[in-house]
Design a protein around this nucleic acid. Sequence first.
DNA 1: CATGAATGAGTTTTCATTCAT
DNA 2: TATGAATGAAAACTCATTCAT
Lengths: 199, 199, 199, 199
Amino acid sequence: MGEGERRRGAPGERGEKREAILEAALALFAELGFHGASMPQVAERARVAAGTIYLYFESKEALVNALYRRWKQELASAMMKDFPAEAPMREQLRALWQRRIAFALKHPREMAFLELHHHAPYLDEESRALERELKAPARELFERARAQEIVKPLPAEALIAIALGAMNGLFRASQEGELALTQEIIDQAEGCCWEAIRR
Amino acid sequence: MGEGERRRGAPGERGEKREAILEAALALFAELGFHGASMPQVAERARVAAGTIYLYFESKEALVNALYRRWKQELASAMMKDFPAEAPMREQLRALWQRRIAFALKHPREMAFLELHHHAPYLDEESRALERELKAPARELFERARAQEIVKPLPAEALIAIALGAMNGLFRASQEGELALTQEIIDQAEGCCWEAIRR
Amino acid sequence: MGEGERRRGAPGERGEKREAILEAALALFAELGFHGASMPQVAERARVAAGTIYLYFESKEALVNALYRRWKQELASAMMKDFPAEAPMREQLRALWQRRIAFALKHPREMAFLELHHHAPYLDEESRALERELKAPARELFERARAQEIVKPLPAEALIAIALGAMNGLFRASQEGELALTQEIIDQAEGCCWEAIRR
Amino acid sequence: MGEGERRRGAPGERGEKREAILEAALALFAELGFHGASMPQVAERARVAAGTIYLYFESKEALVNALYRRWKQELASAMMKDFPAEAPMREQLRALWQRRIAFALKHPREMAFLELHHHAPYLDEESRALERELKAPARELFERARAQEIVKPLPAEALIAIALGAMNGLFRASQEGELALTQEIIDQAEGCCWEAIRR
DNA sequence: CATGAATGAGTTTTCATTCAT
DNA sequence: TATGAATGAAAACTCATTCAT
């Protein structure tokens, strides 16, 4: 690798810097917020010159948006991959919940970033469209569950808000060190959420 | 150059300006975040000169902290006032939940502000201490409920995270316009949360 | 006056700083061009902090435009004031020419600024509209002169280009120190321009 | 990624890139000014990598200077080539004027570039020396004309400023689309300029 | 108390220039 | 030769804070 002695015009691995920038921005935006983190800070953490960021991203806004989309997609993929769409409804709901919290625990900073920037005014139309698009499958799942009279007769949005809101609460508590999320607790909590919404 | 209604030295109500500043800062911080809202913006919205803010608050940080503490206290008061501490446990848990969501719906901006600034790096030790202090009663209530084997044998923090996390989810969904929180839905949702944690 | 010891919040004469900024910007834009002069340079020459410029002008573009309009107006006023509109045509043409060169010699930097920024891409619609508006009277005068068969049957634009172009040439030569524009030479040159266009 | 027609090392015509750079710089400097046009812009327009420019020119300043000298020379050559130095004075003056405007109309961007950069602070001593050198022949011609009492007894600089200034005015008007410079108008205008200065 | 003009450090962004490939 | 990613100083502009009035 030989860090530090490389200079101008010596490209490292293809896209290496772009990744370093995304990684640095993620950490700083998650911790300090979009307006709280400055481009020089991002540059410094990415070990890159300030101007370099603009080779890869048009602006600070473009940077958050790229980051937001990447991880929103990543989350969606993790949720969708081999989803047991043919399994019984209870199984599907469990999968939804467990996959989401597993993702959160595997990528806590990324999840915190997504939560913090959800619906932020500097997200562009593309990011908003993605948000809408990725919300649909969960909604449909809950609609179906309700149609099958498996869950309580509440609006799908309310059911989602309850089950995933509870999950967010757990995740935040664990992030703040109030709670150690062992698999046992997770499984129990999943049971709680199921009992919250089941008919 | 025609002046406004009142001019320098013509005092309005005592503390009127301080209130205007707090109110303006609340709205802007809730909408744009701490770093996203500028002091000139706050001054403009409060219809006060930029310098005036510094008569009442030492700095921007002092301002958020004052705001944070005020509404954290306000929330705590609304929760505590005439709390049915002698009522059956189920009743107490319901009261906790219902009071919190009632507060959120009565003061949505204030609640959004508190949520957004929870654990923010610019909160000072006093604000953090207050946060800790106000968390205690709820924790104790859940501990007691668990000791009475009324709720599931999970850590109090997990039970809180689930019940109040679900509530936050509902509040956020209603704020984003996804869900209309009628009293009927609220009551049903409270039932859900109870079933989530009950033994 | 007490220069140098004044600081924050101590306003000098009303508009004093605005004038200083306009004056500094004029000198620098005339000498270095719009893109060649930086805002910090303007601030320094105006003995003002960089941020102060933005209290008076929205942007660098707004600043050039304000300057351009001011001096375009000033030039127009100097041309129009008590214009001998009833005098014989020859007299009117002489007045036009003499007033313009008198203005140029009285305000050489301002004239150089106007010439340099004429039709520049950063001039806004308002400035362009003013340019068009102020061109009209001269055009009409030459049209009338042509209708009266006093001048050569060339398009008014050509006659203007010749008579005022020659004048510009003289002014530039004098600015570059190639030529001393005594009143005698000016008068003779005016005669030349008259003979250039007369029938 | 698919590459362009040619790649590194596949040589085009000798000096092809240098020409492309000069051509691109000319167009951009003429339109946007020296400071208004960036090296990346020049590179892009020349379809050349940014670094390539520095193989041919030491710096941005070296580039304008090279350009300036080239076209100043070109203009001088066009003026001088087969100049009818033995013809009657009137004929020589006409030739001077007609050749200059013919050049301007044949190379309008180049002429605009020369005009815009005339006496610019980033022109180096060599360019300035060239400017002085090329001014001499015209000056001598007008001196001789004055000595022969063919033209008015004004300083040669004034005569030049008048005759060529008028021409510049016509050229600028035509560039701005105010005036169509037909050969007929040109000839008439040449007559005007002659009458301006003739004894 | 209240003002708001003024400040200057800090922000986002651009750009002339370099140099490993 | 030619490239273009990378640099970092400097540009335009913002903003928390001060202080004479």
